[in-house]
Design a protein around this nucleic acid. Structure first.
Lengths: 243, 243
DNA sequence: GCTTCCTGTATTGTCAACATAATCACGGCA
DNA sequence: TGCCGTGATTATGTTGACAATACAGGAAGC
């Protein structure tokens, strides 16, 4: 017998609340950030989200708390949650962290990657390339990010994979916050070169390539640019006034 | 004027609830795990904790959720939270992750550590050594852990520091879960040697030493031992029955 | 004697209302 | 005209009660 204990209002086919729903909301917000439909500073009101996803505010709060822990959203006391705006400093640190982690991963993969591992990586890059070729930047970017996560997964270290995933998830925000254009091809060639090094079991070269690749990403995101002015005092500071 | 808006029952000198209290509970549980007063598998009942800390269940839930995110506690659906018991596999992955991160940190420090940085590290090891010398293993272990966190802090990368902190926090659980005795001197000599390498700006040697040091930790924790049997089926499996 | 089912209890998950704090709009004032 | 104080509104933080689920003990059946 199906459990129809819920009064009558809304039959719960898909669970309208609970940990499952929390996961659903979390994933939805994360995807929205990925797809640039939510930019840095966007306000995430509990009530609005609760109504939108047909869940209680408590569920939304739990999801926002988790997103806050991964630093994808900033939780301000008594002032709600907004999509995070990583500072330039923080962004550099994120790339530095990625470099450390991903270099270790490729070193491990260079030593232990199986034939099927390499094939999986090549497939990943292939569909990535195809997406860019047909102008679908959104999917391309997604697959490009997937490539990095795949590296972690294939390296057989779930702990590092999880950490890397959280770091990688913050990259789109860095791009948006600092005005860098999302690169049009996002390093497909870098990815291919890296795979070749892995195939040759050339750990040293693979590490170099990864370092360079992340360096490219960092440059493309224009981190060397000054941080966008956020306050009026900055925007109309001495320099602007003097002119 | 002091805000005495609370009715009358209990004047809130220390905040009895809210984000501050959440932090307090989180820290308390984390310390209890550090000090081995809470071992793997220990049940963390919401109501008990709420009464113990004079907060509402909601606050406890929030704290547990955060601890769950850092994997210090395991959250089981409808079955509450227990202190985590990292598997042998997971433990190895944690050490691998620490190795990757800490090697990157010492490489950076070897290049950029200032005189005061080195002094801070030496001071840290000195008090660590002193603690062990007077038989205070608890404080010694704490300071030993602090040393690793200090490395991250001095390296000037808050992102990596945070990640490392979470990884390091799980080490005591690994020791308890897999029955390894907590080492009596926990690598004070390793720490000193590492500092010397940093002082000589010898990045290569510092990396080697760090790798070795973490290797020592891993060995001391007896990860090569089989995992303790948890299920009856395992405990009384074919081998035991045959005898 | 052992297993199986059942019932009572304890614990967690969920929700809706209340209290508190911040934001916004309006009107007075220099 | 621009600024500041004030009040209304909105949003968040918190609490307590309710519902659903899992656990434990005991009774009945094999």
């Amino acid at each position: 017998m199906a459990k129809q204990s819920t009064p009558a209002g809304r039959a719960r086919r898909a669970p309208d609340s609970g940990p499952a729903a929390e996961q659903r909301i979390l994933a939805a917000i994360q995807e929205a950030i990925f797809d640039h439909r939510l930019g840095p500073g966007a306000k995430l009101k509990e009530l609005a989200l609760a109504e939108l996803f047909h869940v209680s505010r408590g569920t939304v709060r739990a999801a926002l708390a988790r997103l806050g822990h991964t630093k994808l959203v900033e939780l301000r006391l008594n002032r709600g949650a907004v999509v995070a705006s990583p500072s330039a400093d923080e962004s550099r640190q994120i790339f530095e962290a990625r470099c450390a982690i991903e270099c270790a991963l490729v070193a491990k993969l260079a030593a232990a990657a199986s034939r099927s591992d390499l094939k999986a990586l090549r497939d990943c890059v292939a569909s990535e390339k195809a997406s860019y070729a047909r102008g679908d930047e959104r999917t391309g970017l997604r697959l490009s990010i997937d490539f990095h996560c795949k590296l972690a997964e294939l390296a057989g270290n779930a702990v590092l994979a999880r950490i890397l995933e959280e770091l990688v998830a913050r990259t789109p925000l860095i791009a948006l916050t600092h005005g860098g254009r999302v690169p049009s091809t996002c390093g497909v060639d870098d990815h291919l070169a890296l795979i070749e090094a892995l195939a040759r079991r050339d750990a040293r070269r693979a590490g170099e390539l990864m370092r360079e690749h992340i360096g490219h990403l960092e440059l493309q995101l224009n981190l060397q640019w000054p941080e966008p002015t956020r306050t009026l005092a900055e925007a109309f500071g001495p320099r602007a006034v003097a002119a």
